[in-house]
């Protein structure tokens, strides 16, 4: 995997029309992880969604583009009515990749592959959602609180997968409160809290 570095330059993001972060400037080279920290409401999810291309930044530049980025949110798009293998096969097809077997093995889901996703436990479902990332074939992973509802074994497996991804020259930006045993560049969002006037105010609504 030959990925370009993940570069944020003076990025400002808004949530529901209210700016939450501004001037976020950071760089992560291939093979490194970016650990996003900050209290609830600091804008971790909003920043990740912006990098994923789901919303536009109100200022600043983000590289690379969304086509290099895989977003792993809590809402992971897995259908309860489909089996584990079918869910992964759908996303592999959408991304034009393969490797479903490897993804199942990496998260210890192989023996569950024929089970309907709605009958998985919360932790198993989480593993399934994370397994999707391996099928995107994209170098930059964005992970929003990935270890919620995972047991110790699950956290361990997840750490292995991320380290392997970094070892292949990938990049990961992880918003988390727990120590995943992954060395990375910390990024504390508390320092980038937006202070300027909302974009709305700049539109000359003062009449």
């Amino acid at each position: 995997m030959n990925a370009p570095p993940l570069v944020l330059d003076g990025v400002a993001v808004a949530r529901g029309g209210v700016p939450v972060l501004e001037g976020v400037t950071v760089r992560a080279d291939p093979g490194t992880a970016l650990i996003l920290r900050g209290p609830n409401g600091a804008g971790k999810t909003t920043l990740l969604r912006t990098i994923a291309g789901l919303q536009a930044p109100i200022a600043g530049e983000i590289a690379p583009g969304p086509d290099q980025v895989a977003y792993g949110a809590h809402a992971d798009g897995m259908k309860g009515g489909l089996t584990v293998a079918e869910n992964l096969a759908f996303w592999a097809g959408i991304h034009g990749t393969g490797g479903i077997g490897e993804a199942l093995d990496a998260f210890g889901l192989a023996r569950l592959s024929e089970r309907a996703a709605q009958h998985l436990s919360a932790g198993q479902a989480r593993r399934l959602g994370l397994a999707r990332l391996l099928l995107t074939g994209r170098p930059v992973w964005l992970l929003d609180e990935p270890t919620v509802s995972l047991d110790a074994e699950g956290v361990g497996l997840f750490g292995q997968v991320v380290r392997a991804h970094l070892g292949r020259g990938g990049i990961a930006a992880i918003a988390t409160h727990v120590d995943l045993g992954i060395a990375g560049v910390p990024l504390d969002l508390a320092g980038f809290r937006a202070r300027s006037v909302p974009a709305e105010g700049a539109l000359a609504w003062d009449v």
Partner: peptide
């Protein structure tokens, strides 16, 4: 979340 993922 599938719609978000399909959009990207």
């Amino acid at each position: 979340g599938a719609l978000d993922l399909l959009a990207t």
